[in-house]
Design a binder for these strands. Sequence first.
DNA 1: CAAATTACTTCGTGCCACGAACAATCTCAA
DNA 2: TTGAGATTGTTCGTGGCACGAAGTAATTTG
Lengths: 143, 143
Amino acid sequence: MKETQGAASGLVRLTFLVQNLYADVGRDCDLTAAQAQMLCSLADRSIGMAELSGMLCLERSSLTGLVDRAQQRGLVVRENDPHDRRAVKVTLTPEGSKALHRFNDELTERLDKLLADLPATERDRFAKTLNRVIAEAPAVSGH
Amino acid sequence: MKETQGAASGLVRLTFLVQNLYADVGRDCDLTAAQAQMLCSLADRSIGMAELSGMLCLERSSLTGLVDRAQQRGLVVRENDPHDRRAVKVTLTPEGSKALHRFNDELTERLDKLLADLPATERDRFAKTLNRVIAEAPAVSGH
DNA sequence: CAAATTACTTCGTGCCACGAACAATCTCAA
DNA sequence: TTGAGATTGTTCGTGGCACGAAGTAATTTG
């Protein structure tokens, strides 16, 4: 019981730690946290606004602004969907893709450093549990 | 190697999951994430603006506004420090304290639920690793 | 006591997120 | 086919959050 409490509180603290790290790396790459998160979602394919807002847990109206600003910075473009004239597909520009890779590289480097002191066995177990928790997570949250 | 990568990516995903949960619970308690975090720091004692901004990794000017809004909502008060007339001590009001407890209770409940499916042994190990990573974390971040 | 330091606030800027209201387009069923 | 209803995305107004530069008041230090 007490361990579970410890886990809850530890989880929160780790979350803020990683969150700060995330923001920090974003700074180095001239990306806000929201932008970085969006670029990650666009890594391998174009995505419509509706689907993207679902992925990021954002209202569509929020996403509009986010994409606007990212587009102004040349990270992203809006493309027309030939099958649906209402729809818009958001796509990474080459520059956006480059920024994403820089971000990802630095982020994983810093995260690896965070876990570097762990013995290999413990780290592997940790990763396994991590993935299990994510996989079993009840959808996203209650919207 | 691959496991470490998995750990890094898993860590980020879990972080966002918990972050959303955190914001969600905040909503239920009529607290923003920043407010909730601040209330947690004030749980057991009054804290000056400078120290508080250090804890929350915020510029002082940012904190001024945060405290302003929290004060307007009656969660917090500014008190004079008798030993230093420049200084201000931020303190929870009874109402702020009540909000904090509601928040904490609901948060740990939801987090426990997140880990509920884990076998006890795995959960304990997870908690242990969690705390170890936090303890060894290199200060906060590079400011 | 004068200069440097510290504690906090103010102001201006920009990003982020929400919800309500709206236009354009698409779908489906009568 | 056509008209009601759903879906896609945007605009607008509001509010919160965070930063940095500049400023005020009080304290410390040489």
